[in-house]
Amino acid sequence: GLTEEQKQEIREAFDLFDTDGSGTIDAKELKVAMRALGFEPKKEEIKKMISEIDKDGSGTIDFEEFLTMMTA
């Protein structure tokens, strides 16, 4: 499992990506986040990433899903 410290770091990354503070990361926010990390993702790639992570089919990534992605 994760230490509380690791969870906190992932939470901070999540909050950075969640620019509108909605508690979820949408495609637009993910794209901005990827760019910040030096990637140039295409729209299809973003969609694919979200569909792989987005277990509940909401079209957005919540913290639990993000946590799973970061620790996979």
Score class of each variant (00 low, 15 high):
1 G>Y: 10
1 G>R: 12
1 G>I: 12
1 G>W: 13
2 L>G: 03
2 L>A: 04
2 L>I: 07
2 L>Y: 11
3 T>Y: 04
3 T>K: 04
5 E>P: 05
6 Q>F: 13
6 Q>V: 06
7 K>M: 11
7 K>E: 05
7 K>N: 04
7 K>D: 02
8 Q>H: 10
8 Q>P: 01
8 Q>I: 08
10 I>G: 01
10 I>R: 02
10 I>W: 14
11 R>H: 03
13 A>M: 14
13 A>T: 13
13 A>G: 02
14 F>K: 00
14 F>S: 00
14 F>Q: 00
15 D>V: 09
15 D>I: 11
16 L>V: 05
16 L>D: 02
17 F>E: 00
18 D>W: 04
19 T>M: 10
20 D>S: 05
21 G>P: 01
22 S>Q: 03
22 S>E: 02
22 S>P: 01
23 G>E: 02
24 T>I: 05
24 T>M: 05
24 T>G: 05
24 T>L: 05
25 I>M: 05
26 D>P: 10
26 D>K: 08
27 A>L: 14
27 A>C: 10
27 A>F: 12
28 K>A: 11
28 K>T: 07
29 E>K: 12
29 E>N: 13
29 E>Y: 14
30 L>Q: 00
30 L>H: 00
30 L>K: 00
30 L>N: 00
31 K>F: 15
31 K>D: 13
32 V>C: 15
32 V>K: 15
33 A>K: 03
33 A>C: 10
33 A>T: 03
33 A>M: 15
34 M>C: 08
34 M>T: 01
34 M>V: 03
34 M>S: 01
36 A>G: 04
36 A>L: 14
37 L>K: 02
38 G>S: 02
38 G>C: 12
38 G>D: 02
38 G>R: 02
38 G>W: 02
39 F>L: 08
40 E>Q: 11
40 E>I: 12
40 E>T: 14
40 E>F: 13
41 P>C: 15
41 P>K: 11
41 P>D: 05
41 P>G: 14
41 P>Q: 05
42 K>F: 09
43 K>R: 07
43 K>H: 11
43 K>Y: 14
44 E>R: 06
44 E>G: 13
44 E>Q: 08
45 E>M: 13
45 E>G: 05
45 E>I: 13
45 E>L: 14
45 E>N: 08
46 I>S: 02
46 I>Q: 02
46 I>D: 03
46 I>M: 06
47 K>Y: 10
47 K>V: 09
48 K>T: 06
48 K>R: 11
48 K>W: 07
48 K>C: 15
48 K>M: 08
49 M>R: 05
49 M>I: 11
49 M>P: 02
50 I>Q: 03
50 I>R: 02
50 I>K: 01
50 I>E: 03
51 S>D: 12
51 S>F: 06
51 S>Q: 12
52 E>M: 14
52 E>P: 02
52 E>L: 14
53 I>H: 12
53 I>R: 05
53 I>V: 11
55 K>S: 08
55 K>G: 06
55 K>N: 08
55 K>P: 06
57 G>R: 06
57 G>H: 10
58 S>F: 07
58 S>W: 05
59 G>T: 05
59 G>W: 07
60 T>L: 08
60 T>P: 03
60 T>H: 06
61 I>T: 00
61 I>G: 00
61 I>F: 10
62 D>E: 05
62 D>T: 15
63 F>R: 01
64 E>M: 07
64 E>H: 08
65 E>N: 07
65 E>G: 11
66 F>M: 02
66 F>Q: 00
66 F>T: 00
66 F>G: 00
67 L>R: 02
67 L>Q: 02
68 T>P: 00
68 T>G: 08
68 T>S: 10
68 T>Q: 13
69 M>P: 00
69 M>Q: 02
70 M>V: 13
70 M>Y: 12
70 M>A: 03
70 M>C: 12
70 M>T: 01
